[in-house]
């Protein structure tokens, strides 16, 4: 269906974008790219990046679903981590300027793309999968709606990395402190009535770094684009560790 597209008024926005290609650049630099955006409707930061890339095709960033569910385009938007695809330009732009940097604390591969290896390695350490020991029934394992409700606020994690890369404890010890995303996943399985490995999961967290490096700064909570609460998950694990009988 074709439809008449009204000619929109445009205004300029200056994007200041972190650029670095290790094979070409000696060191990172900030590049200003001026884009023209419509005045009569809001666009997302990701749309603004597309406009910048039309001018500068070498500009690199990850993206996939463009609707906030795949977790590809986590980045630092005017100083705060978030998903470019669900952050409206009107909220992000300050004094007509938009500064984009890669998520902090992880090595930069190129431009806005970070090396997520440490993040994924920590996730794998919590065995992020259901562990059962009893035989599977013919049909489903039953779970009451109340038991299932325990997983709300946990299973929705999209592994974007916004939380862990805004966490000072993760910056200091990215190899030893598991970080908010991995710990949220740990709790997601401990909290699952079907999981049969709670004790092993808790044992694996009982050292001074894995969990206890969380100091309740709560940056994770304030940046999570899905509105999840890793700090609460961490405190739930703590309580479980403290109260369990050995």
């Amino acid at each position: 269906m074709s439809q008449a597209i009204p000619v929109a008024q445009l205004k300029s926005v200056t994007m200041s974008i972190y650029r670095y290609d290790p094979t070409l650049d000696e060191k990172p630099y900030m590049q200003d790219i001026v884009i023209e955006v419509p005045t009569d409707k809001d666009i997302m930061v990701l749309d603004a990046l597309h406009l910048a890339k039309d001018q500068e095709p070498s500009l690199s960033y990850r993206r996939s679903c463009r609707e906030g569910v795949c977790g590809s385009d986590g980045m630092n938007i005017n100083g705060k981590n978030g998903l470019a695809c669900v952050t409206p330009l009107s909220e992000a732009v300050k004094r007509n300027k938009l500064t984009l940097r890669p998520m902090p604390g992880l090595p930069v591969v190129r431009d806005l793309i970070v090396d997520m290896k440490q993040f994924y390695d920590q996730l794998e350490k919590v065995k992020p999968y259901l562990i059962t020991k009893s035989d599977n029934p013919e049909t489903e394992r039953t779970q009451s709606p109340e038991e299932r409700e325990e997983l709300d606020g946990l299973y929705e994690c999209i592994l974007c990395g916004c939380c862990s890369t805004s966490c000072p404890s993760f910056w200091w010890n990215p190899d030893k402190f598991l970080g908010p995303a991995a710990l949220l996943q740990s709790w997601r399985f401990i909290a699952d009535s079907r999981d049969e490995a709670t004790e092993e999961r808790l044992d694996a967290l009982e050292d001074s770094f894995s969990l206890y490096r969380c100091h309740g700064i709560m940056n994770c909570v304030s940046v999570c684009p899905k509105g999840l609460n890793p700090t609460e998950a961490i405190s739930n694990i703590r309580n479980k560790l403290i109260t369990r009988e050995k």
């Binding site: 489903e140 779970q143 709606p145 299932r148 079907r194």
Partner: peptide
């Protein structure tokens, strides 16, 4: 479901 998919549930 056995792998852990968090389906919504009936009563």
């Amino acid at each position: 479901e056995h792998m852990g998919l968090p389906f919504s549930r009936t009563e």
